[in-house]
Design a protein around this nucleic acid. Sequence first.
DNA 1: CTGAAAGCGCTAACAT
DNA 2: ATGTTAGCGCTTTCAG
Lengths: 380, 380
Amino acid sequence: MAGDVRVQPVARQACAEIRYPAETRRRARTVHRVARRDGRRKLPTIKVVAAAAGVSTSTVSRVFSRPHLLRESTVAHVTEVATRLGYVPHHAARALSTGRLGMIAVVVPDIANPFFPPVIRAAQARASAGGASTVLGDTDEDPAKELDLLVKLQQRTDGVVLVSSRLPEDVVRERGRQGPLVLVNRDVADVPRVLVDSAPGMREAVDHLAALGHRHLAYVSGPTTSWSDEQRRRAVGERAAALGVAVSVLRAHRPDHEEGRAAAGEVLDAGATAAVAFDDALAQGVLAGLAERGVAVPGEVSVIGCDDILAATTYPPLTTVRGRGAEAGRLAVELLLELVDDPDAGRDHRRLLPSSLTCRATTAAPPSSGTRRFDPRGAS
Amino acid sequence: MAGDVRVQPVARQACAEIRYPAETRRRARTVHRVARRDGRRKLPTIKVVAAAAGVSTSTVSRVFSRPHLLRESTVAHVTEVATRLGYVPHHAARALSTGRLGMIAVVVPDIANPFFPPVIRAAQARASAGGASTVLGDTDEDPAKELDLLVKLQQRTDGVVLVSSRLPEDVVRERGRQGPLVLVNRDVADVPRVLVDSAPGMREAVDHLAALGHRHLAYVSGPTTSWSDEQRRRAVGERAAALGVAVSVLRAHRPDHEEGRAAAGEVLDAGATAAVAFDDALAQGVLAGLAERGVAVPGEVSVIGCDDILAATTYPPLTTVRGRGAEAGRLAVELLLELVDDPDAGRDHRRLLPSSLTCRATTAAPPSSGTRRFDPRGAS
DNA sequence: CTGAAAGCGCTAACAT
DNA sequence: ATGTTAGCGCTTTCAG
């Protein structure tokens, strides 16, 4: 099986110590190293609460973890005392005895990409409702960094939600075996995943364009390693073929404004009257590139984005495929929490969230042929 | 059992327990509660490494925390054995004995606001270099949520970086007393802080506009509770006054596209020939609002943003004040790490990062007076 | 330079 | 329903 991919550069990474700056200097002044621990205001422990409340430590413990096992009056009393003393459970201690860290991780390729904040936020909210906190990892679109981070986070958290992974399939699967892992927008068998299914929306987009009268459109691609890109490209291609509409597929690397801007020229060169972009950032770039060249949108060329992430912030407002990223984030965490609780559950869970087209102002009928495109230089 | 989405609304957030979904059900099937702990592949502990290497546990411990106290050969040997066994230090255990969690928090008002991702990312990178991981908090621009989060995170981490806090000054100060806290873009005495100083850039902006011939400009404000807004507004006001240029201050609440769009009309109504916005999102909104009204930028009205966060993604490319958010994030974490190590250090550290103007394509001389502006209503 | 042993604060059997 | 008692895995005096 692909199983033995065994990514083992974990070695030195393993001892990423808690080495704060001054700690190094400290080696010099050897003597009197009073435990720095007292620097922090010492919080009361379960023990002092127990004493103050006249009960045993286990009772206090139960008050905070399984109150339903106790008489109501006891709970009330202990809670009161605890509050008065300012007691708060110590997480590390709890983690050590339960084996549960109370923390999950969410890993994304690029936090600055506006598709991710909503999923992160929703994930966070759901995790917090489940009593877990969330650490965020940013891989900077770099697979090597992604793997490092993933390995590290799998050790330090109860589980991770991996969004839009750029890692090879077998590596992802292997990670899934190492600990609770839920994928978002990546479809790998045997790893639970939630996918925003852009295909329906993309098909609607093509239908919409065809209905408007477009006969030739361009698809502006995203990262090759992206599952979403493949899915979207295929949906556009298939539907267009079925409708007898021509498609030029344009390459683009990072899904950002810059690349989209560059792609605008190619859209024009290809002779397309409409562009469907992998995502909104790219679409926005295309819009800008078109504007630069004096091409009117949607008068001369129509543009459609995907994810509905900044649709309302372009001019004209972008027609786009709505992505439901937040929902995906929430669902992923929900699934992960179940998985943490029971590692054998949902191994092959696969949840699809269908998308749909949202029409705004960047699509219209193509210009009647002959005068179909404005040439900035011939304009005198 | 795959499909069904069961949202378990976790009643009282009161004692934020690690209560994962299934845990509640478990109460039913009382018997055979094998410790779920074995669900996770059990990692080797310091003890087994010690045994395998023929040394004591303390030696292994030292190898991973203060190798300089050991003979090199010992270190090498133990490291080798540890690696072979796949040993990784258990963080919770370490935290419990050292009192150090190895984790800091970064709290921002809105992760979807493009100003923050760079600061978060930089903070994360710096923290990770210092051996700490980072949890991210999003307050959703809500002071109450902010305080909750802050309190909670101060308990669970070694310290927090609080970015663009919307909390009252005394509350912030009090939090600063409760534990290591570093502010970004908020100036509260007695709490260490790093501020991106937008004043220089704002002054340059006014100079630039005045030099171009503008005599009346509008300042589109951000959140009232924002230190940055106050600072920017004042800088614009003072410089303009000194130059004899009129300023209309426009209110805006959330610094987002929508509000900016709405503000465009006000800019026009005020009779200004240039708008300086609190931030780029707002400026971009103004751009869109102007475009909607058929007003040419920069031909009829000039626009300047702040933070340089999406400057390259507008059309025309936005002239803006460069913010240095990433640097601020990095510095803040650096400071925090020092603070964690020595709580008495830098109590009143205050670091200013001067900004500067970046000219792009949204500024130009105002139209010659008389025909200076298009009036949407008077146009018939 | 290395080892032995005493916890860090909390939970979880097992007894009541 | 509550108390007792061992640890969870690691760090850290204190002795050699």
